Amino acid sequence: VVESEEKAEGSVSLEAVARYLEDVIKAFGAEAKVSVEASSREVHFNIETDKSGLIIGKHGKIIDALQSLAQVMVHRGHHRRVAVLLNVGDYRDRRAGILESIAERTARQVLKTKQAVILDPLPAFERKQIHSHLSQIEHVKTHSEGVEPNRYLVVEYEN
C-alpha cells in the first residue's frame, strides 16, 4: 500500500478505505483483497477476487457504486481532490476499449449525418474518457446534459 499524501484532520487513511471496501464486498458474499496505489492526483484501488462478475455487476453498476463510496471516503477531509478509480482484474481497461469504440462509432455517425447523437447516461469518469477521445476529431464537439445519475453526452457536428 502506497500512501503519498498526509492524512487530513478527520479524514480516513487509504488503507481504511481499502478495508471498508473488503468488508462491503464480503457482505456481497465474495472474498476480496484490495490494494492501493496513490499519487498526488490519483488513487487506484485494485480488487483481487474469484468473483469479479459479482463485484462488477450488471453494466458495471456495482463497481461504479463501490467507486462512489470510495471517492466520498477519500475526499472526506482532504483539501485537494484526487481521482479515485476502482478496478477488478482488467475490467477498466476492457471498458476503456468499449468506450473508445462507442466514441469512434458515434463520431462516424455524426460526421456522416451531421446530426447530433445522444449517448446513454454514463458515470462522469466515462463521459470524460469519451469527451477526451472525441476532442481529437475535427468537426465533432461534445457536451454533457442532464442531472446525475442520468447525465449523458451529446455529440454534435461542428462546421
Rank of each mutant, 00 (worst) to 15 (best):
L153T: 01
A124Y: 07
I118Y: 04
H143Q: 10
E145S: 06
K112Q: 06
K51H: 12
T106N: 04
P123D: 11
Y20A: 11
G77S: 08
V2E: 03
V17Y: 00
G29T: 10
N46C: 00
N46L: 12
N159K: 13
G10V: 10
L14D: 09
E145W: 01
E126H: 06
E158W: 08
S135L: 07
H78N: 13
G60L: 07
Q67K: 03
V140W: 06
A16Q: 14
R41H: 14
E145V: 02
K128N: 00
D90P: 10
V12Y: 02
H133A: 12
L134N: 09
V1E: 05
E148T: 06
H143V: 09
D23L: 13
K33R: 13
A103N: 09
G89E: 05
I137M: 03
I63A: 04
R76K: 14
P123N: 14
R108C: 00
I55H: 00
N46D: 11
R95H: 08
H143P: 07
K26M: 00
I118W: 00
R41S: 14
G29Q: 11
I137E: 06
H143Y: 15
L153F: 10
K141W: 08
L86R: 01
Y157F: 14
E48V: 13
Y20C: 07
E104D: 12
R76F: 03
E42K: 14
V82W: 03
L153D: 00
Q129H: 10
V12S: 09
K51Y: 06
I137Q: 04
V72G: 07
L86K: 02
S52G: 15
K112M: 02
H59G: 07
E31R: 12
I55F: 03
